[in-house]
Nucleic acid binder design. Sequence first.
DNA 1: GCGCGATCGTTCGGGGCCGAACGATACTGT
DNA 2: ACAGTATCGTTCGGCCCCGAACGATCGCGC
Lengths: 175, 175
Amino acid sequence: MAGPFSSTDRADLRQAEHDVRRALGQLPLDFRSLLAVSNIFRAATAVRNHMESTVLAKERLSWSAFVVLFVLRVWGPQESHSLAKEAGITGGTLTGVMKSLEERGLARRQAHATDGRRVVVNATATGRRAVDRIMPRFNEHEALVTRDLSDAESDQLAHILRKVLRTVDEVDARG
Amino acid sequence: MAGPFSSTDRADLRQAEHDVRRALGQLPLDFRSLLAVSNIFRAATAVRNHMESTVLAKERLSWSAFVVLFVLRVWGPQESHSLAKEAGITGGTLTGVMKSLEERGLARRQAHATDGRRVVVNATATGRRAVDRIMPRFNEHEALVTRDLSDAESDQLAHILRKVLRTVDEVDARG
DNA sequence: GCGCGATCGTTCGGGGCCGAACGATACTGT
DNA sequence: ACAGTATCGTTCGGCCCCGAACGATCGCGC
């Protein structure tokens, strides 16, 4: 099977990693994890920028606004704190995002039935329709950026990243 | 070898994916690429937040400021446009980041020798020392978040993500 | 009942981030 | 030479983002 430095790795990407080793080789670094993690960010940044400019921009939706709407579409109405956590943003940020979504009639806030502190957020029918309209376009580009991956590689990628995600959650929660 | 739904995938992560299928199953979506890509973002967001709060916050460095400094440390002085591209930010953003880095004496801008439009950015000795001081700490956490990955899995992860990165670059550049 | 600590969402200040517009500079063809 | 075009970094407006501080509300112990 393909190793980490097979011919499918573009020359300049391997060169970049060589440069890092050359410049920081005297530091006691675990380059294997360094390369794994740094490539997560490189890929995430590249894909996110691609998605924002090709799919989200014409819908006038920020990344976070779309994620929030997506979460509401899939998991239904919920309180702010869980919504923020699920969307990967803080409560303070969610307030701003919700303001935008409410102004455009894509989501709504309503008081909790019994707890005066809490707020229940819900997507409007318009908001849900927006997700259903955007997701196929979004997914086309997800398929596009993974076109050179075999089915097995896509599954491996998801699998390995789930492991990382679980570890981070554990570390952040317990120590 | 481990499949995408092995016992190492935490139950709630698999549940989340099941929920997506249930809510959006009627849409014509390629769930394999959907899961692969969405896990890139989940992992990237989680790791980035972790790094910012555990390593970067005490150094009073934003993520982008550190990336810029890192790029300068490894690849040496260069012009703004290539530095911005390498750091994954736009030129407008880099101006703001550079302002912060210059105020703290970590980097410096100087006029290009022959081309009056261009600016050459360089890390100061202080800036380079900062990278060398922070990187080991940063790398400890890179190793931490990948502690449950085998060496082969870390290499696979980097390898697969390089493929994605290359594809995005090609798509954005050519069409 | 009633303080008191915990928890909720919001607000605020500072900065990151982008895309568009801009001024300055360099290159091109004629 | 020089007008037109391209490219550079910066500025600007608007939004996103976080962490800290805040007011409102709840639940617990007494």
